[in-house]
């Protein structure tokens, strides 16, 4: 009875894993397929990757995505780390409300964040462009960084900074010589996740990007909506490979930090 029950569980879990991964894997495999329309295997080619390089919109979008991603990651990681420190190491008035605000920012549907930012930018006469996209990306990343760094802080000895101070370091030295280095795995994980989110975001970006500030996901979305061609498989494959690598690194960094 028990064995049958668990065997049934494992089998259904395996099917779900298949459902979770097969579509993207198929997409990746067929990015090397030598056929423009068919989903039948016609032979191996790198043609679709070659075509990507020829497309200015993709290259420009990629460049913009990387630049925005880097900028947003730096700001969001800094602000998020400070927030995590404030929440885990300090008491201040309004702390509970502030924490709720961050969680609210995490659960708020992206579309609402997107249109409200759009409405606000327009209301104050801020012209849409790369900067508004970066601002939006920082906004949705901050909370995630704070949560990830907070997880690391929770596992850390609360007395580390005090120990440093008893050894003659003032608060400033304790922060740079002890807090930051021992938090580093969490900060790195938070930064990688922030970059991934920025690099992947379509919904919010679609509202706050102005003409001439299309990021890679926006370009890809346009391609998907216009006509389906294998170059999309190719660019998707590249995106998946890059983000998977980042996630792997983030996951490893987090796991290291847990030990």
């Amino acid at each position: 009875m028990t064995r049958r029950f668990s065997r049934w569980l494992v089998a259904s879990a395996a099917l779900v894993y298949l459902f979770l991964h097969a579509p993207v894997l198929a997409l990746m495999v067929f990015s090397f397929n030598d056929s423009k329309f068919s989903a039948s295997w016609m032979g191996f080619t790198l043609e679709w990757y070659r075509r990507l390089v020829e497309r200015d919109d993709i290259l420009l979008g990629l460049g913009r995505s990387l630049a925005i991603g880097l900028g947003a990651t730096v700001v969001a990681t800094g602000l998020g780390t400070l927030l995590a420190l404030a929440f885990h190491r300090h008491r201040f008035p309004g702390k509970r409300a502030a924490e709720s605000l961050l969680y609210l920012a995490i659960v708020t549907p992206e579309i609402i964040m997107g249109i409200s930012l759009l409405a606000a930018f327009v209301a104050v006469g801020f012209s849409l462009g790369t900067l508004t996209v970066a601002i939006a990306h920082v906004t949705f990343s901050i909370s995630f960084v704070a949560v990830v760094v907070g997880a690391r802080l929770r596992g850390m000895d609360r007395n580390l900074e005090e120990a440093a101070m008893m050894l003659g370091a003032d608060e400033w030295e304790a922060f740079w010589k002890v807090t930051v280095p021992s938090l580093m795995p969490g900060i790195v994980a938070g930064a990688l996740l922030a970059f991934t989110m920025s690099f992947d975001d379509y919904v919010i970006t679609s509202f706050v990007a102005g003409p001439g500030s299309s990021t890679l996901p926006l370009v890809v979305y346009g391609m998907v909506r216009r006509n389906i061609e294998p170059s999309i498989n190719a660019i998707s494959t590249l995106i998946v490979v890059i983000t998977s690598l980042l996630i792997y690194l983030a996951d490893r960094s987090m796991r290291r930090s847990a030990r």
């Binding site: 000895d157 580390l160 005090e162 440093a164 008893m166 021992s182």
Partner: peptide, 18 residues
């Protein structure tokens, strides 16, 4: 604390993990 010249050993040791 850093001006007092006093040493301290903490309950969970507080060794710097890095």
């Amino acid at each position: 604390p850093y001006d007092r010249g006093v040493g301290m050993v903490f309950q969970n040791y507080a060794l710097f993990p890095h």
